[in-house]
Nucleic acid binder design. Sequence first.
DNA 1: CACAATTAAATTGCGCACAATTTAATTGTG
DNA 2: CACAATTAAATTGTGCGCAATTTAATTGTG
Lengths: 141, 141
Amino acid sequence: MNDKLNINEQICFPIYLLAKDIIALYKPLLNALNLTYPQYLVMLVLWENETRTVNTIGKTLNLDSGTLTPLLKRLQQKELVTRTRSVTDERVVNISLTTKGAQLKNEAQCIPEQMMEAMNVSVEDLTTLKELVIKILNSKK
Amino acid sequence: MNDKLNINEQICFPIYLLAKDIIALYKPLLNALNLTYPQYLVMLVLWENETRTVNTIGKTLNLDSGTLTPLLKRLQQKELVTRTRSVTDERVVNISLTTKGAQLKNEAQCIPEQMMEAMNVSVEDLTTLKELVIKILNSKK
DNA sequence: CACAATTAAATTGCGCACAATTTAATTGTG
DNA sequence: CACAATTAAATTGTGCGCAATTTAATTGTG
């Protein structure tokens, strides 16, 4: 009895472990770019679209201003982005890539491939996993 | 081109999102027990075995003393555990459930079922996901 | 047996992550 | 047009999570 409260019966614990594991695998690759994983996610968003509002970035990455404001200030300190108040709506802050930030994309090109190698998993398993995870993410009401 | 650096092409990002999502789903359930998710994990370990060293808990949950020491102090403040130096080896700290900590298990019994409901996912999908995640976790060298 | 190497926790420091609140600007409604 | 409601960021506070270092105890080796 009480099986369901056994740590090995937990379904969510392995996902929590995997998420941490993945970030740990990213670490040495991202250290080379002087980025953390959440910072890398923000850069991915900006590499797709040079300027975004804090709000848009937050909606894309599921992060609130409490997380993003200090993170973006650190990216600004590294001279990868600029933060400027919108002229048309003073509440909005536009985040834009600097030249340096845009150029960093070149150094990031190899990361997806390196991660695949580091994870040591077949493309099939990873694809299945991704589809299943996205299905579950979307199944929320 | 540059598809691999597109945020929607990322395989790891959905896993990162899912892990956060799961913890968010746990939150209201764990609030009722006045526990955070990592604290809940530690309690799961102790409910299986009333006394464990910091080291053992850390190996089970993949957490180091930098995370566990303050977390365990908070559990101690809530009077759920005691922290005592081992007599046979003064380096070791034994973490034991208090009566209150042991009793909390009763209130936790309903959580796995409630989580299943909250996640709104079929048992089959969850089982497939878990097996795949564990396979990937084990595939590391 | 001395002493280097190892081990276990604790500590320090930094960066998320998020709840709750605050500040300021904009929008909607009577 | 005034003013309540809404929206966008920022701020405050708490709790991980982990790297790096420190402290103290134990073990291994010459």
